[in-house]
Design a protein around this nucleic acid. Structure first.
Lengths: 344, 344
DNA sequence: AGCGCTTACGTAAGCGCTTACGTACCCTAG
DNA sequence: CTAGGGTACGTAAGCGCTTACGTAAGCGCT
């Protein structure tokens, strides 16, 4: 008999169906050892009663945890927000719940969040971000994740390698390459890069692509003015200031993500530098506002939502011995923020 | 003895401290019945062992659940993203984990998510959004939340009343009033509103504020062209098209949120309507990109992150018999998207 | 008919914690 | 010197589920 005013338990279902607890559990978990008719009866009764297994009891008893932990830098950064949206979508389809954490771009705090998540016994950890500057932090995270996986945990990274886990990785290098090529095609010779903090793998990879494009055209990457700041709008503003001051002959700025590009545009507007007539600007990621900026932003489109989904898919699959790296597509989207280099 | 390669359990702590399970539990929960010295010893040993209570076992045994469920329309909508950021921040400070769900602006799906969350035994439910069009859906959600609270659950709403739970509410009406007033001060007489879908309380409230401002100046709100669409950029574009076609003498558009305002600006740019020279545009919310648009957007600033924190605070507090409504501040932020009405 | 094997189900032992209740001890009052 | 009461701690009974193991029935086979 279900207790008055309480959620039904498995015993309630079992009693109604006149079977044992074990049989009811097996039937609802869809595992073998139950005849089809009995299993159907049990499922139907469960549905009638509105039975939903208590996840705490289930997990305690050794069943799989049905929650996935997601760590991102900041949920109100559009890049991470779109990734999170993808993860949450797919999780909902699978009946999983997503526990979300923000690292605030602080590797120490991120490690702490990771430990917290694991201590909370989530079944799956997804970790976004861009790697650590500090190799010791990185090693600690690797170790934590390795131990987690050894105990049956699943993990995947988004846009970050070097964590020793499966990862979905955009081709940052090819993206950087495409951007530099696009600008050179437009005749730009003095190109500056507004980069996120050095040490991030994302920064290194995108930058490598830019350099290789320059070299390909027989130009030294020493020509390239690279200014490091951080992957935010504020960082973009600061980088733009520095570029305008220290490299006044620059005609094109490659911001290594869209947030920085927005900051760059904002500074150029303030300084009354017309875009793209006097200065071309490109970004990276194609967050959804990029198309609505003025001027609309030329950038590399990354399928962020899809990346989130893919990461979860990767983590859900049985783990192979080799680390899997799932590349994602990317696409140069040319809009109004780039134009021919101004005549000198 | 801690099992090799396994997280320490409470028994491990108890054995090390040479006390019983019950004493260890009491000491770590900080409840009375343990002498100060013993409690200190236990806590220290727990720390040394890196003991973290298994939340599944804790919750099963009747301890409080330490997870809060958050339902928003879409995490990659900046408005909700900022709210979520606030919730997640405060939750982290309190050692709570946030389970996040997206309703996709679909009341039916939202209800389903709510049920799922409750079935998953989260301790606290926070629900953002803007109410339901369908009164039956709304009643269902009310009932679900009431039952949840009767079983000891905590709940709070963000920007939505009529759910029968504590809520943090911006003064939507005053905000709408301020926007309309600002435009009238600039001499605008033909004002159109790009509204989210009718039936949302947020829409109704903001609209009421606009109307009351008009009436206050002795103008009929029948003069006001109100176009309903939805609270997205696409919705804003559609609404702007409709306004330009059906009300060509409009000189100012009030978008009832920033997302719509961005859509409006995008359409005006496409149609080559100069802003603010030919048309003034205002938004509502002041999402962080609003300042970086071109032109930067005049809007009402809402403290979204703070609202998220406040909602959690509200839910954390012991429930009073009366429903509490916590208002939030708001502020008219005048930027470059508004200017004097063009001379006729 | 009797043997073993498979299939379908039941029994019961936990998972790691909280907490009601029980017990030993010490202190004070009569 | 003992009754009564408080404090500090231990014992053990669950919370609701999963699953290893046990058992009975049915099958084909010699």
């Amino acid at each position: 008999m279900p207790r008055a005013n309480q959620r039904p338990r498995l015993v309630d279902v079992a009693e109604h169906a006149a079977v044992s607890l074990a049989t009811a559990s097996r039937a609802l978990a869809g595992r073998e050892g139950v005849s089809a008719e009995v299993a159907d009866r049990i499922r139907q009764i469960a549905a009638e009663l509105g039975y939903v297994a208590n996840p705490y009891a289930r997990t305690l008893a050794g069943g799989a945890s049905s929650t996935v932990g997601l760590i991102v830098h900041q949920v109100d950064d559009p890049y991470f927000a779109e990734i999170a949206a993808g993860v949450i979508q797919l999780a909902a389809e699978q009946g999983l719940l997503v526990q979300i954490c923000q690292s605030g771009r602080d590797p120490g705090y991120e490690l702490q969040q990771l430990r917290h998540l694991i201590a909370q016994r989530v079944g799956i950890v997804l970790i976004g971000g861009s790697g650590y500057d500090d190799p010791r932090m990185e090693a600690a995270a690797r170790a934590e994740l390795a131990a987690f996986q050894n105990h049956g945990g699943r993990a995947a990274a988004i846009g970050r390698h070097a964590l020793g886990i499966d990862a979905v990785l955009p081709d940052n290098e090819a993206g950087g390459h495409a951007l530099a090529q696009h600008l050179m095609d437009l005749g730009h010779r003095r190109i500056a890069v507004a980069a996120g903090s050095a040490g991030l793998t994302t920064v290194a990879d995108r930058l490598a692509g830019v350099s290789s494009a320059l070299r390909q055209r027989g130009r030294s990457s020493a020509d390239l003015a690279v200014v490091h700041s951080d992957f935010t709008r504020g960082g973009g503003r600061a980088a733009a200031e520095q570029i305008l001051n220290e490299h006044p002959d620059t005609t094109a700025i490659i911001a290594l993500n869209d947030a920085m590009a927005m900051g760059v545009l904002s500074t150029l507007r303030t300084r009354r530098v017309p875009v793209p007539a006097r200065m071309s600007v490109v970004g990276f990621d194609d967050v959804s506002v990029a198309a609505d900026l003025a001027p609309s932003l030329t950038t590399i489109r990354l399928p962020m939502t899809e990346m989130g989904r893919t990461a979860l898919t990767l983590a859900l699959k049985p783990r192979s011995t080799r680390i899997r790296r799932r590349p994602t597509g990317h696409l140069l989207v040319v809009r109004d923020s780039t134009g021919p280099a101004p005549a000198t």
